[in-house]
């Protein structure tokens, strides 16, 4: 069997996790290359629809990460985000979505090593789960619809 390389998208806030991932770089810590980072001002800015879109576009896993509680640059964006994710994650469970493919984490600007570990562990866990065929098959319906509605 071919080695499965999962596609991972990371939604991170500018002030903590993005800076933390910068630190991983300046510390020259190595991690798996499967992740693509999208920068947000704050975890509070992350619309759940973007997570739906990431899965629909073929992501096998998603990382969502921001400042630790009480460390938010905007004081409370991460608290809002946390509550939103609590509900969203439960909603996904209720609809049968593999919610563990979304890894939520707090990574501060000082936690370069934690970022490397987080990516590596996420890649490993998604490798075990395999490609998210169920969601991707569902997403194919869009392409088919587009073909018939050209």
């Amino acid at each position: 069997m071919d080695q499965f390389e999962p596609k991972i998208v990371a939604f991170v806030c500018n002030w903590c996790t993005y800076a933390g991932a910068d630190l991983t770089g300046t510390s020259r810590l190595k991690y798996a290359h499967n992740v693509r980072i999208i920068r947000f001002p704050c975890t509070g800015r992350i619309d759940f629809l973007l997570l739906q879109q990431a899965f629909a576009k073929g992501a096998d896993g998603i990382i969502v990460s921001g400042c630790h509680p009480n460390d938010c640059h905007y004081t409370s964006g991460n608290f809002h985000a946390r509550r939103r994710w609590m509900v969203f994650r439960q909603m996904l469970e209720n609809m049968g979505v593999e919610a563990e493919r979304i890894v939520f984490s707090w990574v501060s600007a000082a936690e370069g090593a934690k970022w490397a570990d987080l990516v590596n562990e996420t890649v490993e866990s998604i490798k075990k789960l395999g490609p998210y065929h169920k969601y991707q098959d569902m997403a194919k319906s869009l392409e088919e619809w587009e073909v018939t509605h050209e």
Binding site: V87, F88, M91, M95, M138, A139, S141, L142, W145, H149
Partner: peptide, 25 residues
């Protein structure tokens, strides 16, 4: 286009998930 217009599997799923989220609480 947050939610695809068509009533196909993805568009329907996205729609019902979004609606349920917007009603949560």
């Amino acid at each position: 286009q947050w939610i695809s217009v068509g009533s196909h599997q993805l568009g329907n799923f996205d729609w019902h998930l979004m609606r349920a989220m917007h009603l949560a609480g």
